[in-house]
């Protein structure tokens, strides 16, 4: 498995796209910290980038990579290597590469400029989101043989978690505004890894007052250690669940 991951990483590094991505993140992170003297404002702007760009690039890059590596997978299939090793070796390789790009591009500047609880929450959330969306990309890629369709599904997944889900939640809030929905909101937000990250970072920035009464409930729930353990557990589920569903399909897939 490690050997396969090694070849995947080596192959990704050679494509140079990942280097461009790292440089882009680094430039953006460095820029936001240099142009703004208030560090918490920089973190807030960086948060928007982490929540939008990281999931998008992770899911699209991984999907394209998975389809492009079909020759590599086919070559390995005829060897005495189990599908489990091939699949998780691929994940390990892609996951490591994306994570490294993120850590160098975002985490490094954040540590330099804002090495506090807020900074580390941002770093951890972004790292989780990277792995979550790499998992989701694997899931999208095994659903269909057609590369264009696979990328389409990936885009839809990203669109859903970034935009559509929030719209649905807002709709629910309006429709049931006469009822006390605060606890339901906590539950609903844990079904979206991006929302989960956003809440954690905003709570650490201590501007949850801006979120009204729901913000107080969030703070009450996510602000203590149980809430943090819960949200980390939810992020882990978001990494593991799509990945294993993808593996179940991959195991029975014909090549």
């Amino acid at each position: 498995m490690m050997k396969i991951a090694k070849y995947v990483v080596w192959n990704i590094l050679r494509s140079k796209i990942i280097l461009a991505y790292t440089l882009f993140l680094f430039a953006v992170a460095f820029g936001t910290f240099s142009f703004e003297s208030d560090v918490s404002k920089s973190i807030a702007s960086l948060m928007s980038i982490v929540l939008i760009i990281i999931p998008l690039v992770s899911i699209i890059f991984t999907t394209i990579y998975f389809y492009n590596s079909s020759e590599f997978i086919e070559l390995l299939m005829a060897q005495p290597i189990s599908r489990k090793k091939i699949f998780f070796g691929e994940y390990l390789g892609v996951g490591t590469s994306m994570l490294c790009a993120y850590l160098i591009g975002i985490a490094l500047p954040v540590i330099i400029y804002s090495a506090d609880a807020v900074g580390f929450t941002l770093i951890a959330s972004g790292a989780c989101l990277t792995l979550v969306f790499v998992s989701l990309a694997f899931f999208a890629s095994v659903l269909t043989r057609d590369k264009a369709k696979g990328i389409g599904i990936s885009l839809m997944i990203w669109f859903y978690f970034s935009i559509i889900y929030d719209a649905i939640v807002l709709g629910v809030m309006f429709a049931f505004s006469d009822y006390p929905l605060e606890r339901v909101m906590v539950l609903l937000s844990s079904f979206n890894p991006i929302d989960l990250s956003r809440i954690l970072i905003l709570l650490k920035l201590d501007i949850s007052a801006l979120m009204g009464f729901t913000g107080a409930v969030y703070k009450d729930f996510f602000g203590n250690s149980n809430g943090i353990i819960f949200s980390i557990a939810m992020q882990m589920i978001w990494i593991v669940l799509p990945l294993f569903s993808a593996f179940r399909i991959f195991r029975r897939k014909n090549w």
Binding site: N11, R14, S15, S70, E71, E74, L75, A78, P80, I81
Partner: peptide, 21 residues
């Protein structure tokens, strides 16, 4: 199983290989 494939050498009809290697 996968270990039995140690004993098989396979030449596909159309070999597909990672093309940047």
């Amino acid at each position: 199983e996968e270990l039995y494939r140690k004993e098989i050498g396979y030449m596909p009809q159309i070999g597909r290989y990672p093309d940047n290697m």
